[in-house]
Deep mutational scan, measured.
Amino acid sequence: VRQEELAAARAALHDLMTGKRVATVQKDGRRVEFTATSVSDLKKYIAELEVQTGM
């Protein structure tokens, strides 16, 4: 499950970095929206997932 969450989070980051205004991911069973202003929060979430998956 964590691998899927990590892939979704990375895709969301890619979307935001390429101009999409809002990206949505499932985080702990709930839907979370990230915007360009919350990229740093999304990067932290990705880092947490990488630690949890041993990457």
Score class of each variant (00 low, 15 high):
Val1Leu: 08
Val1Gln: 13
Val1Pro: 06
Arg2Glu: 09
Arg2Trp: 13
Gln3His: 10
Gln3Val: 13
Glu4Trp: 15
Glu4Gln: 09
Glu5Asn: 09
Glu5Cys: 11
Glu5Lys: 08
Leu6Tyr: 05
Leu6Ile: 07
Ala7Lys: 14
Ala7Ile: 14
Ala7Met: 13
Ala7Trp: 11
Ala8Gln: 14
Ala8Phe: 09
Ala8Arg: 12
Ala8Lys: 09
Ala8His: 11
Ala8Glu: 15
Ala8Pro: 02
Ala9Gly: 03
Arg10Met: 13
Arg10His: 10
Ala11Met: 13
Ala11Glu: 12
Ala11Lys: 14
Ala12Tyr: 02
Leu13Val: 03
Leu13Met: 06
Leu13Gln: 01
His14Glu: 11
His14Thr: 10
Asp15Leu: 13
Asp15Ser: 10
Leu16Thr: 00
Met17Leu: 06
Met17Val: 12
Met17Ile: 07
Met17Arg: 05
Gly19Arg: 02
Gly19Ala: 03
Lys20Ser: 10
Lys20Ile: 08
Arg21Pro: 13
Arg21Thr: 15
Val22Leu: 07
Val22Asp: 04
Ala23Glu: 03
Ala23Phe: 03
Thr24Leu: 07
Val25Pro: 01
Val25Lys: 01
Gln26Val: 15
Lys27Met: 08
Lys27Leu: 08
Lys27Gly: 03
Gly29Arg: 02
Gly29Lys: 03
Gly29Pro: 00
Gly29Glu: 04
Arg30Asn: 08
Arg30Pro: 02
Arg30Leu: 13
Arg30Thr: 12
Arg30Glu: 07
Arg31Asp: 15
Arg31Asn: 15
Arg31Glu: 14
Val32Arg: 04
Val32His: 06
Glu33Gln: 05
Glu33Phe: 09
Glu33His: 10
Phe34Asp: 01
Phe34Thr: 01
Phe34Met: 03
Thr35His: 07
Thr35Val: 05
Thr35Glu: 05
Ala36Lys: 13
Ala36Thr: 08
Thr37Cys: 09
Thr37Glu: 15
Thr37Gly: 15
Thr37Lys: 09
Thr37Ala: 15
Thr37Arg: 11
Ser38Pro: 01
Val39Met: 15
Ser40Met: 14
Ser40Tyr: 07
Ser40Gln: 06
Asp41Tyr: 04
Asp41Gly: 06
Leu42Asn: 00
Leu42Arg: 00
Lys43His: 09
Lys43Ser: 07
Lys43Met: 13
Lys43Thr: 06
Lys43Ile: 15
Lys43Trp: 11
Lys44His: 05
Lys44Met: 13
Tyr45Ser: 01
Tyr45His: 05
Ile46Gln: 00
Ile46His: 00
Ala47Gln: 13
Ala47Leu: 13
Ala47Glu: 13
Glu48Ile: 06
Glu48Thr: 06
Glu48Phe: 05
Leu49Asn: 01
Leu49Glu: 00
Val51Ser: 12
Val51Met: 13
Gln52Asn: 04
Thr53Met: 09
Thr53Gly: 12
Gly54Thr: 06
Gly54Arg: 04
Gly54Gln: 09
Met55Thr: 13
